[in-house]
């Protein structure tokens, strides 16, 4: 395997991971504040359509991307109004929104289908892009990769190192305690929900303006939001691990495409669906690893002990068991 091929592979993985990273980071912020935004998949799809349409209308892909972010925040606002202000079940509303946004995207985007439009182009930063291996993969490629990597750092810094981030985590861990300490719980949750939705919207923009350019029925990013939701669990609600999880799934997609060249007999559709069984399997492994039964087995078989998560980790207190409550 030549160095060039390896560089190309890294570039492809980073490229495919960029929107997944943004969407999963958005959901991480939202869930860290205690709001499960199940509308993520619809948000990504709808924002992809809005971003593409806006980019065509203004002939500026960056304005399109911003419009995508706004669209995502708008959908999150609907969820916030229903879930936080009206007190409806977040899960039910989120799920309805995800189906609704998908249909809305195809309905409103009918005129955009299979039309040419602008995209985000490619970076070529001097010096940096000459670094070995990662230079070309990050700096001589679509700006979305750089964008997503910067976002990981920013979100990590915000959540773990700022006072506002501390408030977010406190609100998500124990809303009752946060109220008692005079923190504005609902406002914090609403803002985090909006921020998470905006990141999901940006992810949609990255798809239609760069990673899977254009609009069509079906758009290539269908299901990406669900993968991102699973990645958040996979990453234990920690921004950096969540980003690594996104890279892992992107690597699977890229491997599928690479294998397609090697094994042309296998149908392309099988590779398209490959991330979904992998998603189920990773959730299975992650959840079993956290179970008491596994810890006990690890106590007896030292080799397994290395696989036991060191920290209790787990979901923010406010959303523990939320999925089991039904609607």
């Amino acid at each position: 395997m030549s160095l060039d091929y390896l560089t190309a592979l890294i570039a492809a993985v980073l490229f495919a991971a960029a929107p997944l990273i943004l969407a999963a980071l958005g959901e991480t912020i939202s869930e860290r504040a205690g709001v499960i935004n199940l509308s993520l998949d619809g948000t990504v799809l709808f924002a992809a359509m809005v971003a593409f349409a806006a980019a065509r209308a203004t002939d500026n892909p960056w304005l399109g991307l911003a419009a995508g972010g706004l669209a995502g925040a708008g959908i999150a606002a609907v969820l916030g109004v229903f879930g936080l202000l009206l007190g409806a079940s977040e899960l039910a509303v989120g799920f309805v929104l995800t189906l609704f946004c998908r249909e809305l995207a195809y309905f409103m985007g009918h005129g955009q289908a299979r039309q040419p439009g602008p995209d985000l182009g490619a970076l070529n930063l001097p010096f940096l892009s000459d670094l070995p291996l990662f230079g070309p993969a990050i700096f001589r490629q679509s700006p979305v990769v750089l964008l997503s990597l910067v976002a990981v750092g920013l979100v990590w810094f915000f959540l773990m190192r700022t006072r506002a981030g501390l408030v977010v985590r406190a609100v998500g861990e124990a809303p009752a305690a946060a109220v008692a300490r005079g923190l504005a719980v609902t406002r914090t949750q609403f803002l985090c929900c909006l921020a998470g939705g905006a990141l999901g919207g940006l992810a949609g923009g990255l798809y239609s303006l760069s990673v899977k350019p254009g609009w069509g029925h079906p758009q290539g990013c269908e299901g990406a939001g669900w993968i991102a939701l699973a990645i958040v669990i996979f990453g234990g609600w920690k921004p950096v691990r969540v980003a690594l999880g996104a890279l892992f799934f992107a690597a699977i997609q890229v491997a599928g495409i690479a294998l397609q060249d090697v094994l042309p007999g296998l149908s392309g559709t099988l590779f398209q669906i490959a991330p979904f069984p992998v998603m189920i399997l990773t959730l299975l492994v992650v959840n079993l690893r956290r179970s008491a039964a596994f810890r006990e087995a690890a106590r007896r078989v030292p080799l397994l002990g290395r696989l036991v998560p060191r920290t209790a980790g787990g979901a923010p207190g406010a959303i523990v068991g939320a999925l089991d409550k039904g609607f």
Binding site: L166, A170, E173, A176, A177, R181, G182, L183
Partner: peptide
């Protein structure tokens, strides 16, 4: 100020972060 029966704190967060969320402005 009230010390409630079940401690109203944030169990997974470290002691100093719990202390920083004192009720007034958040401490660095």
């Amino acid at each position: 100020g009230m010390l409630s029966q079940d401690p109203l704190d944030f169990p997974p967060l470290p002691v100093w972060e719990n202390f920083a969320l004192g009720g007034g402005p958040v401490l660095s």
